[in-house]
Nucleic acid binder design. Sequence first.
DNA 1: ATTAATTTTTAGACTAATCTAAATTTTATT
DNA 2: AATAAAATTTAGATTAGTCTAAAAATTAAT
Lengths: 219, 219
Amino acid sequence: MMITLTEENYIKAIYHLGKQGSTTVSTNAIAQEMDTKASSVTDMVKKLSEKGYVDYKKYQGVSLTESGKAIAINVVRKHRLWEVFLVEKLNFSWDEIHEVAEQLEHIKSKKLISQLDAFLGYPTHDPHGDPIPDETGNIKKIDKILLSEVKEGNDCICVGVQDSSTEFLQYLDKNKIALGVNLKVLQREPFDNSIAIKIGDKELVISNLIANNLYVKVS
Amino acid sequence: MMITLTEENYIKAIYHLGKQGSTTVSTNAIAQEMDTKASSVTDMVKKLSEKGYVDYKKYQGVSLTESGKAIAINVVRKHRLWEVFLVEKLNFSWDEIHEVAEQLEHIKSKKLISQLDAFLGYPTHDPHGDPIPDETGNIKKIDKILLSEVKEGNDCICVGVQDSSTEFLQYLDKNKIALGVNLKVLQREPFDNSIAIKIGDKELVISNLIANNLYVKVS
DNA sequence: ATTAATTTTTAGACTAATCTAAATTTTATT
DNA sequence: AATAAAATTTAGATTAGTCTAAAAATTAAT
């Protein structure tokens, strides 16, 4: 049974909203994520349910079935591999890749993806630090925490972002924050939860909003 | 005005049928090329006409306008660049690329294509020997002729194929015929128009059908 | 130059995906 | 527990693309 591009996008949205497909997701949340109306979501969710991709009970929200989850993970895999390709091979910057990867992720060819994976050297993470599922759908997650949770005095290394918006990524670029960069938390300001960090030999004060969208690993 | 994937495919079909968009094309021919019904073609052609991509008079066939031709050439450019990518970077063989390139050709991103072009080293021809239009839509054509037209005793070099079907390309592979390979026409058989050729140090008799689908340049 | 065959177009219907507006169910609040 | 608010679903309409069957135009053949 053929899956359409739209169905694939709904499944992906449900996956992301449901934290890797484990939680139940509301109609409204999907509508917001997909930039569409709740009534459209209801229609589509019924269809996905008939096709066996989601579990759905009226008024009770949706969750992915195993087959739905497998589809979602495969789309995520394709999306992230293409992102690596765009950055590593075509010199895109990390704030330019999302839109294009949204299109590329729907290309259907098993061989294309396995060859691309090999061509890129079997990358484990995309340019935003998110893990790339392997061919069997396995995702190995690293133990990352938000920068906002790091204690004063601790050294850490930047491993990912929570928000992948152009604005946020360009802020990071401007301040020379990139994946792999070392940071030290100098001081936390309780009043507004801002944090003073040392990056390279420079000091920088970042807001709580920023610190809440940056993943690090304490070293 | 946004152009849909389907519209793009119709424009491409009209371009190919009309020999690079110069000739008028019939409704039935388009229907056959697109594997759809003539009535569907009429509907679509009306829409394309309203949008200014084709000139159309009832019962008189269709031809591309300048803007339609520009769209077609751009799709062709993308298709052929992706084919080069698949063969050169992802180790596809030339009989496996068409289907995937059919999907990739619709990805919309100016930067993607210009970067891909650069990444591939600005190739001038795709793996089937067809020329790749440049960014401005310019196509430089080489003076190729069909192998069936080569005189006895002449040496030539294989530069392209007319038919890109899997079956034909696999026949060529099997017989070690590839782009760039030198051939010599030993003898032409008038009875069935078959041709005896020398390829490397081997002799091979090929049918007229084969010779009519292989482009060469006399050297 | 009629008639026959073929091609093309029209008319009307169908599916996928969407929308608005109204109805229903659930959740929150008094 | 009753009512108000919010979320969700239904009903009915719309658009893009397609289809079948019938009508109209063109081309071919007698």
